[in-house]
């Protein structure tokens, strides 16, 4: 009986402490999503809901079925959504407050893509030109956008 009472006491203290801890930390900040140049491959609502399914399907296609002619590629996500410091250096997309990290922190979903994948594009020293060239190269074709009813129409 003493043991049971002791266990309950420990549990109560733990619950109380976790409450204090949570109150101390405050609410997680709302995600800050910087607009990327150009158009995404799908509209924002679709990307929010399905990006993980797309990535999951596509990774099977790319890695195991050598079907690399897909637009839904993580490297393209990074190329568009990466931010730069004032001095022009890329900030990893999984750094705190960045495109991927801020949303994932808000919804409390662990992000492990960048345990293995590069979190910055390759063109480290290059200027805006490289970025916009990538955007142009991976821009969603008109036909697909129309069929998905996505994007505010018409490429740049």
């Amino acid at each position: 009986m003493r043991i049971r009472a002791g266990l309950w006491a420990v549990l109560a203290v733990a619950v109380a402490l976790s409450g204090v801890w949570a109150a101390h930390r405050g609410r997680v900040a709302l995600p800050v999503v910087a607009r990327a140049p150009g158009h995404c491959v799908l509209n924002t609502a679709q990307m929010r809901r399905t990006h993980m399914m797309l990535l999951r399907t596509v990774r099977e296609d790319i890695v195991r079925r050598d079907a690399r002619d897909t637009r839904f590629r993580l490297t393209h996500c990074v190329a568009c959504h990466v931010q730069r410091t004032a001095s022009g250096r890329f900030i990893p997309v999984n750094a705190p407050g960045q495109f991927c990290a801020s949303c994932h922190a808000y919804v409390g979903v662990r992000l492990d893509c960048f345990d293995c994948h590069a979190a910055v594009p390759h063109h480290a020293g290059a200027g805006q030109a490289a970025g916009s060239a990538l955007v142009a190269a991976f821009r969603m074709p008109r036909a697909l956008r129309a069929s998905k009813g996505a994007g505010p129409g018409g490429g740049p």
Partner: peptide, 24 residues
């Protein structure tokens, strides 16, 4: 921990790896 991967050669802690014949 690995942090400076090339975009075409993902590699990360806790997994096995080897020559990819430079598949890309």
């Amino acid at each position: 921990n690995v942090s400076d991967q090339k975009p075409w050669a993902p590699r990360g802690k806790g997994t096995a790896e080897g020559c990819t014949m430079c598949v890309e």
